[in-house]
Design a protein around this nucleic acid. Sequence first.
DNA 1: ACGAGGTCCTGCGAGC
DNA 2: TGCTCGCAGGACCTCG
Length: 275
Amino acid sequence: MPELPEVETIVRDLARRVADRPIQRTRLHHPDVLRGTSRARVTRRLTGSRIRRLSRRAKHLVLSLSGGYRLVVQPGMTGSLLLLARRPAGTARRYAVLELTLDHGEVLLYRDVRRLGRIHLLDEDAWAAYTARIGPEPLAPRFDEARFATQMQGTRQAIKKTLMDQRRLAGVGNIYATEALYLARIDPSRPTDGLTERELAALFRSIRDVLRGAVRRRGTTVRDYRTGTGERGAYQSALRAYGRAGEPCDRCGTRLAITHAIDQRATTFCWRCQR
DNA sequence: ACGAGGTCCTGCGAGC
DNA sequence: TGCTCGCAGGACCTCG
């Protein structure tokens, strides 16, 4: 669910508010989200340490801790991170996965309805290996057309699937891949290695435009996504293809089509303007 | 190297 | 109203 713009929004909302604060207590309600670590290890490393900073890498939230460890949270489809004045009670406690009690009784809460999200606890070396497996950040100042073209090289799988491959490009998921291809007027099922230099350039621009626009509007809330302050994003009203199957294309009026032929994921597109 | 399909989970809306 | 079915923003795995 949360793709780059959603995770970026959460980080912008919360980074300053959690930086340099102590973790006084750790409550892990669903250890099944842990990967490569155990409840005991997580509790031991978190409790009594301090949050140095909260940042984003691709679609992942990164909590850097004193002591050199990083807690990496992949929100998956339905995860969200919230800073609360006190422990959640009643229905707010439902779906709580990890509760970190900070000072002044405030609680940093990770909740995740479907629990497809994952949590890793990584030391410096493990983090280096983890981040090395992820592709470049599309909004980084140094990321340019040439780098994008290089990342897309050497595969004939559908361009939409390549865009969503986190090893090739960081942070793009189903919504923004769909939108970027619509804006660039490229058929999502085209083999990646068949795209011209010109088409790749158009796609490079549309990816950045779409992601920047979505960050500006604090993300897309289809259902579960919430910002770091618990609000809904606003980019859903700016979507031009995703979720609009059956509606007219805003360029040519043709009804937008939907297919599940690419990686079993919903893809909306205009068969007339996307070639 | 690639595509297909299963797995992890729960909730929701559609249709009967 | 209550049931089942299919689908949902992600990522990992195996198999052929």
